[in-house]
Design a protein around this nucleic acid. Structure first.
Lengths: 155, 155
DNA sequence: CTGGAGTAGATGAGGTGTCAACGATTTCGT
DNA sequence: ACGAAATCGTTGACACCTCATCTACTCCAG
């Protein structure tokens, strides 16, 4: 017996609500910021950041998708839009006739190089500086714990 | 002098990355779950939940928007879509000629009543159970702290 | 070397979010 | 009472995400 209760108890609910509100507010403000500061969308930023940091400005589409944990179709659409805006370009892949290399254009490189320090500054201002170093590392540790827990669960 | 460094130090970066990954994974899994369990989108769920819990199934559009911290236009579009699906309906507001009441239809009430326990169950499984009660309350407290910090900042 | 299974990626449809502009009231100062 | 300003809500354009489906290529067993 002892089915799990159908609702969260008050303390759990408070914790959950605070987490959700914080997370939404934070992500919302950060992405609006990237948008107004750089003219890029948050997605553009993430893609360019991963492409230049991890891939040296040139990556296979599927690797790029994995590096930011996106579905391939999402990445494909995003790359199409970014190509239209001149931030990246598609190149054929000599080794694999199906494949495509995604490369950051000079404009894309410039854009990310200008946007990155500002973005980091906002992360610092909104998030990092809200907490003591000890609190920050606690929050990081608890996040990792939830992450590991989820990865053990089906779905 | 002493300009803030342009990058996060390694410990800050680890904490930030873990937080971001956790939050994205969690929200993603929860909304996919609501979708497949109930056929509603995560937005449908939030709107119906707030409408029935806080408003007794009948609320002004702008109040509804504020209750979930959405922009009015987002809510207006969402209500249009939900009306098309028969989850809510618009009613004229006698007191205020500009206004609109949003009401949950019987179908909407049924839908949220069926979806809510399942959703809570997933929150519990993915998030609550990852942590001890003490850790959970810590995470809630730190979230609140970040939230308060952000509310003090412009933008 | 050939046929089937798996992989890389593109694409179309439909739901969703944002921004800016708008129409329709209500409210308020004078 | 009257006009300006604020408020309530809608709309259109556009960017974005997901899902299912499709093509084209690679790989491998026989």
């Amino acid at each position: 017996m002892d089915a799990p209760p159908h609702w969260l108890d008050p303390e759990q609910k408070v914790a959950w609500d605070n987490f959700i509100r914080m997370q939404e507010t934070l992500i919302g403000r950060l992405s609006r910021r990237v948008q107004t500061d750089s003219g890029m969308s948050a997605s553009d930023y993430i893609v360019l950041a991963s492409l230049t940091e991890r891939g040296g400005g040139r990556m296979r589409l599927l690797d790029l998708a994995k590096s930011v944990e996106w579905e391939k179709s999402r990445m494909s659409h995003q790359v199409t839009r970014m190509a239209k805006r001149g931030l990246v370009a598609r190149e054929e892949c000599p080794d694999d006739g199906r494949g495509a290399f995604i490369v950051a254009t000079p404009a894309g490189c410039t854009a990310i190089e200008e946007a990155a320090p500002q973005h980091v500054e906002h992360v610092r201002r909104l998030f990092i500086e809200a907490l003591t170093p000890h609190q920050l590392s606690t929050l990081g540790r608890l996040s990792k714990r939830v992450l590991d827990h989820m990865e053990r669960l089906p779905d």
